[in-house]
Nucleic acid binder design. Structure first.
Length: 938
RNA sequence: GCCCUGGUGGUGGAACUGGUAGACACGCAGGACUUAAAAUCCUGUUCGCCGAAAAAGCGAGUGCGGGUUCGAUUCCCGCCUGGGGCACCA
């Protein structure tokens, strides 16, 4: 009997579907385990071999935990709203709902092929109304809450209103407008509009104004990756920054908890570092500098009360360097620029601002060329009265700190280069620590040229200066975050509509009973007027009433991360019509025990979902405030592209190593018609509907050899490999094991199909332990030998350990070693083989199930119990010690493991080879690491 | 530019906490079985030197240059280089 994987896999997949083998109950006495994959976006291109890497890993863990007696939740669904479907609709007129559903069907078929253990009864799609109803509901909870800094948690906005009515906002600093202060009486006297505007500055989901990529020619807002080098990707039209009304989530209020929460979860150090850096907490001081218009000496400034009443507020982490400030730099968006620019500089400043408007934040920061423009204005150093020129430069971003910095060229590299470039004199405040050719960012130098700070260590001066600034009333201690509030609206169609109506400039939330607010159909997916999204074109939908008076609906939609910020909760209770997830159920499943996905979500999705979880926890809807207990990052599978070389202007293709000196076009060729690097010429001639049917070839040794390059896997590079074809050719079990065998799951690597046969051979070899081509069944009920038990138990230990630490590639190797050794031992004993099958079930479930059944077992191997390791079968009494002379291994000596150091020394020094290498020199030292090695030092 | 991460034979990778570098595979070479092929099995395979070959031996070797250590793929410093992210792709 042969290993007929196609029949076996089909049979068991049907069996498992029919018996609902993967259905999970919310009621179980078993301990729970929740394994989750990051939501896929169902793109039209379908799955390529890169996608299932993480899914296979999570499937192995799920099945492994099940064998170990856990009730395992392992769901899958689709992050189905998004830009590509809308773009496709724009180009082809197909409704996004339709193309999305088709893509999902396609994804599902491909996933089913691989034999995953998902409980499909729990599938969710973010674009389904019974899902996004709850996304809208959570939005309303955020809208109706504020962050109470005293309690450090989200609280209902009703509590805030009560507080305002009793004591004004004295207890609650306004996060959207920190200088705002009012009394209870003032609050009561405000109009409704005024009250609502104030509340908006407190809400966790709030409306404000923000800059977007605006393309006048297309009349629409563009996503960052639709903008290339300052022009639109489609059409190449100019793109500028434009301010539009936007919704935001006040994630900055959670900054500290998002930071401290990292200590309670198992993310990689790299991931925690990235999130920490993104949040970017720093402490320093805000300092207010008096400004003086150009051309006026200090004594004259009193004649210019207007100019000198203006102040420039900067944020710095290094107030100790205040005597080293040689110039100021403000962001080109800074509102003071208009007021302080002198007539002589006006033209230059305007030109510079126009230039900056066309550039993205990324370009601005990455720019190596130093650019900037002097405003003509001067700030006054409050300690020594020095005049400090105020410059504008793109490297200062409006959104960070106060949008203005004090530049200290002797201590900051970028300031230093700026000063050199514009010939601004540099003041040295750190003596020898500054060499005049490079800035030195030390905190340990002793200050000089620094007035009252002279002789103070910089590190200590920070406190001294802050205290002084506070005494003088011109500055204060300040904690700052790089993180900004999260933009939460898109001028797009294919997303969740906001459950908000506008009346008289006030945003009113819909009643929860009115949810879901359905996404209406539109005729065209093009932009609405004034930068609004497509929904703005639907007058019938847009115009509505609120409390009997005319009102308009919010026409923005929510961004992609809305639905994906809480989906892990919906899986727990996917069909609940009363609530997003019953508390009792989320108490049982609790946190996701293992979350698997790529590092590309490090700071976006992972921070947003952490914030939503904290807010839902604060409001009492769930009982934990971190969604993911443990995160495993999967590496990206890259494509390994193949190239053919066409002699310019001909149909002649030249083999890779013969192309030197010939002018050729380098063309991507489909990797699926290349065997290793050898082109399948016949397949090539048929490729692309026979475009190359008449091609001629210049071969080397009778073969056409292709060029190779590692790139992102993408359809346009013809380097995608579809899992379907591999499953068809080798089977799902082989495919699963090969993906794992490729290397550590968390490392990026190029895909190469070449090695898959080795894994396939392994499964065939395993099969031959059970069946012989001629004799059929060959397993026996004989008692295993000590040698066979040793192989088995070594494997149990290795598979258990490796799976537990997600080292799936080494686990696959261990299976190979185990089968190789059992084959060498001619072992066909049921007692041994049966346990091997259980070990293998998470990795290759189909073949394991088939052989398990063949052995005559009742019940499913999915619910077998994981073999228990018995150390007594594998204990050794002696060890082949490597013997090094001065660190170089020269020989091996077998020594009993319980030998004492004295005995070991005697044995080693008596050895002939050791003596030869010692060349009669005296022994300096003998290093003996028990069970590891011995080093003779002479 | 900033943050994170990787670099080991012809190839994917192994070496888990500083202790025999190259497990396990792919590929390649040689052989067995076969009329032949497929499948399967066996042997060899880091590089260089020595040698007819085999065996044995010697030297070098984990991106590059330094350092710490009896001992470094592993720790430290500097550099080169591939990948991911940088707030509207998901």
């Amino acid at each position: 009997m042969e290993y007929n994987f196609r029949d076996i896999e089909k049979k068991w997949q049907k069996e498992w579907t029919d018996t609902k083998a993967y259905q999970v109950s919310n009621n179980s006495t078993k301990p729970k385990y929740y394994v989750l994959d990051m939501f896929p976006y169902p793109s039209g291109a379908g799955l390529h071999v890169g996608h299932p890497l993480g899914y296979i890993a999570s499937d192995i863990v799920s099945r492994f935990k099940r064998l170990k007696g856990f009730n395992v939740l392992h769901p899958m669904g689709y992050d189905a709203f998004g830009l590509p479907a809308e773009q496709y609709a724009l180009e082809h007129g197909v409704h996004p709902a339709k193309s999305t559903a088709q893509n999902i069907d396609n994804f599902r078929k491909q996933l089913d092929n691989i034999g995953f253990s998902y409980d499909w009864d729990r599938e969710v799609r973010t674009c389904d109304a019974d899902y996004y109803q709850w996304t809208q509901w959570i939005f309303l909870q955020l809208f109706n809450s504020f962050y109470d800094r005293n309690q450090q948690k989200a609280v209902s906005i009703q509590e805030l209103i009560k507080s305002f009515e009793q004591e004004g906002n004295i207890k609650h600093v306004c996060p959207g407008n920190p200088t705002l202060q009012f009394t209870a009486a003032a609050w009561k006297a405000f109009s409704e509009k005024e009250q609502q505007d104030i509340l908006m500055d407190y809400r966790l989901a709030f409306c404000g104004y923000g800059e977007v990529n605006w393309c006048e020619a297309l009349g629409t807002v563009l996503a960052n990756d639709e903008v290339v080098n300052g022009v639109s990707e489609r059409g190449g039209h100019p793109v500028v920054k434009k301010k539009l009304r936007q919704w935001y989530l006040r994630i900055t209020e959670y900054a500290d908890r998002l930071l401290s929460g990292l200590d309670t979860i198992e993310f990689s150090e790299a991931m925690k570092e990235m999130q920490t850096n993104w949040i970017g907490k720093s402490s320093g001081a805000e300092i207010s500098f008096k400004l003086q218009a150009a051309g006026y000496k200090q004594e004259q400034s009193s004649l210019q009360p207007e100019a000198s009443s203006l102040e420039l507020l900067v944020y710095t982490t290094r107030p100790d360097t205040i005597f080293g400030v040689d110039f100021m730099v403000v962001a080109p968006e800074h509102e003071l620029i208009e007021k302080i620019t002198t007539a002589e500089q006006k033209e230059a400043v305007d030109a510079y601002i126009t230039y900056v408007k066309s550039r993205s934040d990324r370009e601005r920061q990455a720019e190596k060329k130093i650019t900037g423009c002097f405003t003509g204005a001067y700030a006054i150093n409050p300690f020594d009265g020095r005049e400090i020129p105020v410059w504008i430069s793109e490297y200062v971003l409006a959104g960070y700190g106060t949008g203005a910095i004090m530049a200290v060229p002797c201590g900051d590299e970028r300031d230093f280069k700026f000063a050199k470039h514009f010939n601004i004199p540099i003041t040295n405040i750190i003596g020898d620590a500054f060499d005049g050719t490079d800035a030195n960012a030390t905190k340990d130098a002793v200050l000089s040229n620094s007035g009252f700070l002279n002789g103070t260590k910089m590190r200590d001066a920070i406190e001294v200066v802050i205290t002084k600034l506070e005494e003088m009333g011109i500055g204060k201690r300040k904690v700052n975050y790089k993180m900004r509030d999260a933009a939460f609206s898109r001028q797009r169609y294919w997303g969740e509509p906001f459950p908000i109506v506008w009346q008289d400039g006030i945003a009113y939330p819909l009643d929860e009973k009115e949810l879901p607010l359905l996404l209406p159909d539109v005729e065209s997916y093009g932009p609405g007027p004034d930068g609004e999204g497509p929904l703005a074109n639907l007058n019938d939908w847009k115009n509505t009433t609120y409390k009997g008076k005319p009102a308009v609906r919010e026409t923005n939609t929510m961004p992609g991360y809305a639905g994906s910020s809480w989906y892990f909760l919906r899986y727990m209770d996917p069909n609940n019509e009363q609530t997003f997830c019953e508390k009792k159920v989320s108490d049982y499943w609790n946190q996701v025990d293992l979350y698997i996905g790529g590092t590309e979500h490090a700071v976006g999705h992972l921070l947003y979902s952490r914030m939503w979880t904290k807010a839902l926890y604060d409001l009492g809807y769930i009982g934990f405030d971190e969604p993911f207990r443990k995160l495993l990052n999967q590496g990206m599978i890259q494509g390994s592209s193949r190239f053919v070389y066409r002699k310019k202007g001909t149909q002649t293709f030249i083999s890779s190593s013969l192309k030197q000196g010939v002018e050729v076009d380098e063309l991507h060729v489909d990797v699926n018609i290349v065997d290793g690097v050898e082109l399948d010429i016949e397949a090539f001639k048929k490729w692309r509907n026979g475009e190359y049917a008449n091609a001629e070839f210049i071969l080397e040794e009778g073969k056409y050899i292709c060029g190779v390059e590692v790139e992102k896997m993408s359809k346009s590079k013809f380097n995608t490999v579809n899992p379907d074809t591999l499953v068809e050719k080798f089977g799902a079990d082989t495919f699963r094991m090969y993906e794992m065998f490729l290397g550590p799951v968390d490392q990026s690597k190029p895909w190469d199909t070449k090695g898959i046969e080795g894994v396939h051979r392994f499964l065939k070899k395993l099969w031959r332990l059970f069946f012989d081509e001629n004799k059929g069944k060959i397993w026996t009920d004989e008692q295993p030998t000590a040698g066979e038990l040793k192989v088995l138990h070594r494997t149990i230990k290795k598979i258990d350990d490796d799976t537990e630490r997600y080292s799936f590639n080494t686990a696959v190797s261990s299976f190979m070693i185990c089968v190789n050794e059992l084959s060498d031992l001619n072992c066909h004993k049921k007692q041994i083989l049966q346990d091997v099958l259980i070990l293998l079930t998470p990795y290759a479930p189909h073949i394991a199930a088939e052989l398990w059944k063949q052995l005559g077992n009742e019940g499913s191997v999915l619910d077998a119990s994981f073999p228990v390791f018995n150390a007594s079968y594998v204990t050794e009494t002696s060890k082949e010690y490597p013997i090094s002379i001065n660190g170089k291994t020269r020989t091996n000596i077998s020594i009993a493991l319980d030998a004492t150091e004295e005995q070991v020394k005697e044995i080693v020094l008596a050895n002939e080879l050791v003596q030869k290498w010692m060349e009669g020199k005296p022994l300096k030292k003998l290093i003996f690491v028990k069970g590891k090695m011995i080093n003779v030092v002479i």
